[in-house]
Amino acid sequence: MYKIVKKRVLNPTVTMMDILAPMVAKKAQAGQFIILRVDEDGERIPLTVAGYDRAAGTVKIIFQIVGGTTMRLSAKEEGEYICDFVGPLGCATHTDGIKKVCIVGGGVGCAIALPVAQRFKELGCEVHSIIGFRNKDLLILEDEFKACSDKLTVMTDDGSYGRQGVVTVPLKEEIEAGEKFDEVITIGPLIMMKFVVATTKPYNIPTTVSMNPIMIDGTGMCGGCRLTVGGQTKFACVDGPDFNGFEVDFDEAMSRASAYAEFEQRERDKCCNLFKKEVK
């Protein structure tokens, strides 16, 4: 059992938790992920590491409610326990040879982008961050990004906060204005990452994308997380989750991500009903 030592609601659908898991905290690095189960008979879901405190033995996770499991998790309170927590899995984000980087995060993906931005800052790189949300209410981690970025641009789809528009607009502007990024790292919805790659490719700026496909074991055993990268089958859990964005087949990844859309909807509805009853 793994204790929830801290919980913070970041916005109506996004929650942050610090989980006591000393063995995982000791090894975790930016870019890696964990797998958890909320309760016995629960589903295994992967979540990218959003931070860690080696001294306290805690690992930070930030998640959005998308299905039954994340809804059950968000209903847990500080001091309560979750059943399983395993990691760190996957490879850490590579940082070698990068002096100037642009981090592009979208929605809850910003939670994963943050430790990457912090890591580059620690290493003394120049960090530009562009973070995008649907609207002001969904904005998360602005202060944290400000603290580790030399330049921060906040975008909202509806213009209710920061600039109005998508993340690729300021990205393209910065590139056109002559900013020489050694690398662009993007984490967010698949469709956003696809367009970030389409933006950087004409300028041939190396672009890393963080993939978060459907997974079960997270150790390479099931192959459910497979992606086509550079025409080859890769497993996000052992070969990734970071990949060269120019080589990822995003259309296939988007199709595969929708495999259980109907089931997820049903589970979410079931859970909504359940919690409404309990909360009442």
Binding site: M221, L227, R256, S258, A259
Partner: peptide, 16 residues
């Protein structure tokens, strides 16, 4: 076509 939806490895199918 091995990445189409509905295509499993036996490991994934049986693990599920």
């Amino acid at each position: 076509g091995e990445s189409l939806k509905g295509v499993y490895s036996a490991n994934e199918f049986l693990t599920r």
